[in-house]
């Protein structure tokens, strides 16, 4: 179980084609696809990537990522709105609010991380879930910050303009940020900090006896992941223009977990793949006759099937297909991909 390594399973050609499609998307797809589906896919993918980063490199499956994303969104809402809505209505300019919102989220992320990072595995999952539900209830009850109705009319910065009129601007911003987040997470994984984190994932006792502060590394990783989640939250606030406690309820928390699991908990690319599948099901399942309003049941069933059949999610399936292809090309050679070791095992290292 400890041998599971996050591997890049997209070869360069496929990745280049996908990025090219993403850049040209506004020319290919209609406004609904750009403004609703693909932008949503990008920021949901960013939040899911923060979850997958913690899971793949730190062995920590966190359910608090949606709460942190919501905290960033509520901070943006409170700081930038100007009258006519709930919250503090501080009326800052949008650009000034961004660093403050990120700082608040990272601060709370470090607090959450410090409290939960001495626990591992299933305990960590439960503790972060309680943080998530408490954050949801907090914004529901504290009317001076939000209340159940939430905050409306959150303005996007000037260069994005009105999101309804220029959906492609927010789309490109989300695309650039998603690519940066992906590159940053891959880079962090290769720094001494990232390598130590992976060492802690595989054998915390040994790392501790080598002199590494296990709890501190876990806490810092959590704080870093909360920064990533906060980016997603800021994008969400601009995209939706409105944020309310239901945005970060148990349902939303589970939605992001579903995204990460569908994509694959051990591969960063899976975040955006899972997000795409989720967004498509969410938007189109209602048109299937027998599904209609019960698309959450459909999502639950898809989730259940993936957990039961392919614990590595769709990226795990992709990896195994790749292994099969390679085996076909060079008969007699055993597959060497990391996905083989990963299949059937979903446990973070305890």
């Amino acid at each position: 179980m400890s041998a599971r390594r996050p591997t890049a399973s997209l070869d360069r050609g496929t990745a280049a084609v996908l990025v090219a499609i993403a850049i040209l998307a506004p020319l290919i797809f209609n406004t609904y696809w750009i403004g609703t589906l693909l932008t949503q896919m990008l920021f949901l993918g960013i939040v899911a990537a923060s979850l997958i980063f913690l899971s793949a490199y730190g062995g920590m499956v966190s359910l608090a990522q949606v709460a942190l994303y919501g905290i960033a969104g509520f901070a943006i809402g409170n700081l930038t709105t100007n009258g006519n809505t709930k919250g503090l209505n501080l009326g800052w300019t949008p650009l000034a609010a961004i660093p403050v919102a990120l700082a608040i989220t990272i601060g709370l992320g470090l607090l959450f991380g410090a409290l939960s990072s001495r626990s591992v595995g299933i305990y960590f999952l439960m503790i972060t879930l309680t943080f998530s539900v408490i954050a949801n209830l907090f914004f529901g009850q504290v009317t001076s910050l939000s209340g159940f109705g939430g905050i409306s009319g959150i303005p996007a910065p000037g260069f994005i303009g009105n999101v309804d009129h220029h959906p492609d601007r927010l789309y490109y911003l989300a695309l650039v940020l998603a690519l940066l987040v992906y590159a940053l997470l891959r880079y962090i994984a290769r720094t001494p900090f990232g390598l130590t984190l992976q060492g802690i994932r595989d054998d915390p006792v040994r790392m501790s006896s080598l002199g590494y502060n296990v709890t501190l590394h876990r806490t810092l990783a959590f704080g870093f992941a909360s920064f990533i989640a906060a980016i997603g939250g800021v994008l969400f606030a601009y995209w939706n223009g409105h944020i309310d406690p239901a945005t970060i309820g148990l349902g939303a928390t589970i939605d992001v977990l579903v995204v990460a699991v569908i994509g694959g908990l051990s591969r960063l690319e899976g975040a955006w793949l899972g997000a795409l599948v989720f967004v498509l099901i969410n938007n189109y399942a209602q048109r299937i006759g027998f599904v209609s309003d019960r698309f959450h049941t459909l999502i639950g069933v898809v989730f259940l099937v993936i957990v039961l059949l392919s614990p590595d999610g769709l990226m795990g399936l992709w990896g195994r297909l790749g292994d099969l292809r390679r085996r076909g090309e060079r008969p007699g050679q055993a597959p060497t991909g990391g996905s083989e070791r990963g299949s059937g095992e979903l446990e973070p290292t305890v």
């Binding site: 999952l125 589970i254 049941t297 999502i299 639950g300 069933v301 614990p311 979903l346 446990e347 973070p348």
Partner: peptide
């Protein structure tokens, strides 16, 4: 973790 995810799926449905 897999068992926890299964029960989450059941709770969604």
């Amino acid at each position: 973790l897999r068992q926890a995810l299964i029960t989450i799926a059941v709770s969604i449905i």
